[in-house]
């Protein structure tokens, strides 16, 4: 008993130490975001005065459309997530609950394309976006991201695990396919839908490559592109920059803390992607 007690204390101490070390950058970030500009480079981490107004200033700084970027990021991530979950769950139903001739072959094609690096597709898609006149528009960010082979695959895996008898019972009661999908299968695949929602939302909130290729005008930037612009144009204002970064990181931490049960399960069940 005595040995296990000291072991228990030691484990907790080691884990606490590692956690603290991993969090040090974040602690520095928050403390610096509260400093006045002249104290930023000092070795002392603790701010002499707490300048909470930094968080107000970033919204009113010239050329930094911070509020607008925030809105853009959330809006685009929301639209993409909404559309992707709809298209993926519809397709997953077609791939898992209905038996038809070409089903498995088309699904294999979907699977095969998951192996293709996104980079290959981005180059022609860029040309397509130019031809469609969608460069520098929200639609150009939303539409190509709304169809995902990975999402379809993930939801299909969840739908495959629902017993066939549910559909059959519903069909005997006279339900048509749409009712089976909407009232029975979709509610039962809720864990999968939640996982896909988190993955897609976070992925698009954080996405970088496609937005930096597509966006040209400053007020249409999403947060990552905006932050990069902020850093390269007014980067010496470290305190404001840190305030901006803190504000952009906090939603992610909140999402993770609130939904981590689903997220962890989703990652462990569905393997990993990105």
């Amino acid at each position: 008993m005595k040995r296990s007690k000291s072991q228990f204390v030691l484990n907790n101490l080691v884990l606490t130490l590692i956690s603290l070390l991993l969090c040090l950058p974040f602690i520095w970030m928050i403390l610096t975001s509260l400093k006045p500009l002249e104290d930023v480079g000092k070795a002392e981490w603790w701010p002499k005065i707490f300048l909470w107004s930094n968080y107000k200033t970033i919204f009113t700084t010239e050329h930094i459309h911070y509020g607008r970027w925030y809105f853009n990021s959330l809006f685009i991530a929301f639209c993409v997530t909404f559309l992707q979950v709809i298209t993926s769950s519809l397709a997953a139903f077609g791939f898992s609950r209905i038996k038809w001739k070409w089903r498995d072959r088309i699904f294999l094609l979907y699977l095969a394309t998951m192996m293709v690096p996104a980079l290959i597709l981005m180059i022609p898609n860029f040309q397509i976006m130019i031809e469609m006149g969608l460069i520098d528009s929200y639609l150009g960010l939303i539409i190509p991201a709304s169809f995902s082979a990975f999402g379809t695959f993930l939801i299909r895996q969840f739908m495959m695990s629902i017993p066939k008898s549910f559909d059959e019972a519903a069909e005997i009661d006279g339900a048509n396919s749409w009712q089976v999908f909407w009232q029975i299968i979709l509610p039962l695949s809720r864990p999968g839908l939640i996982t896909l929602t988190i993955f897609t939302f976070m992925g698009n909130y954080n996405s970088f490559f496609w937005p930096i290729v597509m966006l040209k005008s400053e007020h249409k930037y999403t947060l990552p592109i905006g932050l990069l612009f902020f850093e390269s144009s007014q980067g010496q204002q470290t305190n404001l920059l840190m305030a901006a970064i803190t504000m952009s990181v906090i939603p992610m931490i909140l999402v993770f803390v609130c939904l981590q049960k689903h997220l962890v399960k989703g990652i462990q069940l569905g393997g990993v992607k990105g």
Binding site: T87, I120, N125, S177
Partner: peptide, 23 residues
């Protein structure tokens, strides 16, 4: 088959335009 394709149609449309064609 029609039913399956109907459920697939929104996804397969986007899939063809933004994945298969670009490939």
């Amino acid at each position: 088959t029609l039913l399956g394709l109907a459920f697939l149609s929104p996804n397969i449309l986007g899939f063809s335009i933004f994945t298969i064609f670009p490939l």
